[in-house]
Write a protein that binds this DNA or RNA. Structure first.
Length: 580
RNA sequence: GCCUCCGUAGCUCAGUGGAGAGAGCGAGGGACUUCUAAUCCCGAGGUCGCAGGUUCGAAUCCUGCCGGGGGCGCCA
C-alpha cells in the first residue's frame, strides 16, 4: 500500500519518466503534480510547460515524452495531454480499490512518520499570573496544542513550555495586596474567586496610594532579593493562578500540565549570565543608560538603528533578556533542534530581532527558530479585544457559553440521559470553539461573533462530528465491522470520489505540519465529511437492495471515513463522539 | 516616515505560478412514515482593491498607488 501523498508518488514517477525520456533530473515536487479541478480528472501534471523553454522543446512534446515513458499503468489510466501541455491523470479503479482495502490495516491512514525526528520546544498559551485567561489566550493555547499534536503524530519529540508571566515589577503590588487581604505565607487555605477583580483592586490601590506604591517597591526588592516570606507569598499567588489555568485547560482539553510551566521566573537565574555573555561577545552597547544589542537591519521611526534592550537603565531585565535566556536554555540544556513560539503576530518584529541577536550570540546555530504568529481576535467594532479596553471576555465564560449552547441544542434534539447529554455538550461546545478558531488561517485577524463560534452548519466541527456519528451508528447496526482484506468494489461515482478524498489525508497532514497551519487540515476534513455525506445519501449500505458485496465494500468506506475524521479531529484536539 | 500583514460572491472565508476562481452562510427551488434531515440535491450570485511589470501562464511573484489592521526604546 502507498504511504504518503498520492501526488508525490505520481511526481516521483514523472521524474523517472523525464530522466529516461529526456535525461532531465527533477525532484518529485518539481514535477508539479496537483489535484485537478477538471471534471473526471484526479491529478494533473504541469511539468511540461515549466520545462519547455529550458529544453528548447514545445510543451506538448515534453508532455508527450512524459506520457510515453510514464511507468504508472498500475496506478493511473492512460494519461491524456490537454491544452498547452497538461498531462491529465485518472487513478485506476482497481488501484483505488486496493488502496482503500489496504488502508483498513493502517491506523495512520497512509500518513508516514518522519525518518528524521526532531526535538521541538514549543512556547504556547503563556497566561499571566493573577490575571484571568481571556479570549486572547485562546488562540495560542489551541493553535499551539494542535501543532504539538501534529508534530508528535509526524514522529517528532515535542516539549511544550508554558511561558507564564510570573515575574516582574507588578508582583510587588500584587503581593502587597495579598498581604492586605490577609494571606499568610505558607498557608494553602487561600483562594481568589475573581482573579481579574484581584488584579484590578491591586492596580487601583497602586494608582491612588503613595504609601502602597512604596510598599510595592520594597516588596519587589525583597522578591528579587530572595526574601523567604515574600517568595512564599509569591508562590501562593502563582499556585492559586495555576489552579485557575488548570481548570481552563481541563475544560479546553489542552494537554498542558503544571510540569509544562516554564515561567519567566524559571529563567531568572540565567539572565545575568546571558547578558554577561552578550557583553563578552562584544555585541552590546549602552544607549541612554540601557544595555542594548543592535541586530543589523532594524530601524525606528527616526531612521536610527533599533535597539533590542536586554537590560533596562534601572538595571532590571525585560522580555528580550528572558527570551534570549530561553533560547539559550532550550538549545544548550535541552538540546532542541527547533524552537516554536505560538505568540500573536504583533510581536513579529520582537522575535525577528531576538532570533537575530541569538544567532549573533551563537545561541542559535543550526536550530530552526520560528515565530508561529497568529492574528488578533477582534470585536464587532473591528478593533482588537483588549483586556484594558473594557471589552474583556473571560475565556472560561466563552467556553461555558459554548457548552451551554450545545447543551440546549442537544436537549432539544436528542433523548440521551442527562450524563450523556452533559458529556456531549462539552465535546460539541468546546469542539465548536476550537474548530471555529483553527479553521481560520492562523495569521489573519478574525472578528469574534457568537454566531460563528456556535455555528453547527457548513464547515464546523459539529458537521464533522455528526458525519462521524452517523457512520458509527451504521457500523453499530451492521453488527460486525469489516475486517482487513475485505474487498472494496467501487461502482458509484460517490464511492470513487470518497476513496480519492480519503487518500488525500497524508497530503493534508503534511501541508498542515509544513506550514504550522491547522486550517489546512480542517479544510480537508470538511471536504472529506462533505464527500462522505454525498456518498451516504447516494449509496445505501444496510438498506434492502444492497448486494452483500456492496454492503461490505461500503462498510469499509464508512469505517475508513470515520477513522480519518476521528484521527484528523484528534490532531486538532477535538473529540468525536460515537453518538450525537 | 519606515517595517509588516490584509483587501476574493450580499456576509464569513478557502485557494501549492497552471485549464470557465471555490466552499459555507444568507436569499430562491426541490428531497424526510430517515442505514441519524445537526443532512442532501439544483440553479443564481465575481472588474480576485486599482495600475503597471515579470512569465508560455498571475488571485498567487515584483513595483507603485488607494483603503484597513498591527509594529516601530526601556510593559510583556
Amino acid at each position: 500500500m502507498l504511504q504518503g501523498d498520492v501526488g508525490v508518488e505520481l511526481g516521483r514517477r514523472v521524474a523517472v519518466a523525464l530522466r529516461t525520456a529526456l535525461g532531465v533530473e527533477i525532484t518529485p515536487a518539481e514535477a508539479l503534480v496537483r489535484p485537478s479541478t477538471r471534471e473526471g480528472v484526479d491529478y494533473q501534471c504541469n511539468v511540461a510547460m515549466s520545462l519547455a523553454k529550458k529544453l528548447k522543446k514545445a510543451p506538448r512534446d515534453v508532455a508527450q515524452a512524459v506520457v510515453e515513458h510514464l511507468d504508472s499503468a498500475d496506478m493511473v489510466e492512460a494519461p491524456e495531454i490537454a491544452g498547452p501541455g497538461f498531462v491529465n491523470l485518472v487513478l485506476r479503479t482497481e488501484w483505488l480499490q486496493e488502496q482503500a482495502a489496504g488502508l483498513l490495516g493502517d491506523d495512520r491512514m497512509g500518513a508516514s512518520a518522519t525518518e528524521v525526528p526532531r526535538r521541538v520546544a514549543i512556547d504556547l498559551s503563556s497566561p499571566n499570573v493573577a490575571k484571568e485567561m481571556h479570549v486572547g489566550h485562546l488562540r495560542s493555547s489551541i493553535i499551539g496544542d494542535a501543532i504539538m499534536r501534529l508534530l508528535r503524530f509526524a514522529g517528532h519529540e515535542v516539549i511544550p513550555h508554558n511561558h507564564l508571566g510570573d515575574w516582574g515589577t507588578p508582583f510587588g503590588m500584587l503581593i502587597e495586596h495579598l498581604v492586605d487581604e490577609g494571606w499568610k505565607a505558607g498557608s494553602d487555605s487561600h483562594s481568589i474567586s475573581d482573579l481579574n477583580g484581584f488584579y484590578v483592586a491591586a492596580r487601583k490601590k497602586f494608582d491612588a496610594d503613595p504609601d502602597f506604591v512604596e510598599r510595592a517597591r520594597l516588596r519587589v526588592v525583597a522578591l528579587q532579593g530572595g526574601d523567604e516570606e515574600t517568595l512564599a507569598l509569591w508562590r501562593g499567588l502563582v499556585e492559586e493562578s495555576t489552579r485557575h489555568f488548570e481548570k481552563v485547560y481541563e475544560l479546553l482539553g489542552i494537554g498542558l500540565t503544571p510540569e509544562d510551566i516554564y515561567g519567566e521566573s524559571f529563567y531568572n537565574p540565567y539572565l545575568a549570565d546571558t547578558v554577561a555573555e552578550l557583553e563578552a561577545e562584544g555585541l552590546t552597547e549602552v544607549s541612554d543608560g540601557a544595555l542594548c544589542v543592535f541586530p543589523p537591519g532594524f530601524s525606528n521611526r527616526e531612521g536610527d538603528r533599533l535597539p533590542l534592550i536586554i537590560r533596562k537603565s534601572d538595571g532590571g531585565y525585560n522580555y528580550a533578556s528572558t527570551d534570549l535566556a530561553t533560547i539559550r536554555y532550550w538549545v544548550r540544556e535541552r538540546e532542541v533542534t527547533d524552537l516554536l513560539y505560538v505568540v500573536g503576530t504583533p510581536q513579529a518584529q520582537h522575535f525577528t530581532m531576538v532570533f537575530a541577536a541569538a544567532r549573533q550570540a551563537g545561541y542559535l546555530t543550526d536550530q530552526h527558530a520560528e515565530h508561529v504568529g497568529f492574528g488578533s481576535i477582534l470585536g464587532e467594532d473591528g478593533k482588537t479585544i483588549r483586556s484594558r479596553a473594557g471589552g474583556t471576555l473571560k475565556l472560561v465564560d466563552l467556553l461555558t457559553e459554548a457548552v451551554d449552547h450545545a447543551a440546549a441544542v442537544i436537549a432539544e434534539r436528542t433523548a440521551f440521559d442527562a450524563d450523556e447529554q452533559a458529556r456531549l455538550a462539552k465535546v460539541v461546545g468546546i469542539g465548536a470553539v476550537k474548530y471555529a478558531d483553527l479553521s481560520n488561517d492562523r495569521e489573519r485577524d478574525y472578528v469574534f461573533t457568537w454566531e460563528k463560534m456556535l455555528a453547527k452548519e457548513g464547515n464546523t466541527s459539529v458537521y464533522l462530528q455528526y458525519a462521524n456519528a452517523r457512520i458509527r451508528s451504521i457500523l453499530a447496526k451492521a453488527g460486525s465491522v469489516p475486517g482487513v482484506g475485505t474487498p472494496v468494489v467501487l461502482t458509484e461515482p460517490a464511492e470513487r470520489a470518497l476513496v480519492v478524498k480519503l487518500l488525500g489525508f497524508p497530503a493534508a497532514v503534511d501541508a498542515a505540519i509544513e506550514a504550522y497551519a491547522p486550517h489546512k487540515l480542517t479544510t480537508y476534513l470538511y471536504e472529506t465529511a462533505s464527500t462522505f455525506t454525498t456518498f451516504y445519501d447516494a449509496c445505501p449500505i444496510l438498506k434492502d437492495g444492497t448486494s452483500p458485496e456492496a454492503r461490505e465494500s461500503r462498510l469499509v468506506l464508512a469505517q475508513l471515513t470515520s477513522r480519518v475524521l476521528v484521527l484528523g479531529l484528534s490532531l486538532l484536539g477535538i473529540d468525536a463522539p460515537e453518538r450525537l
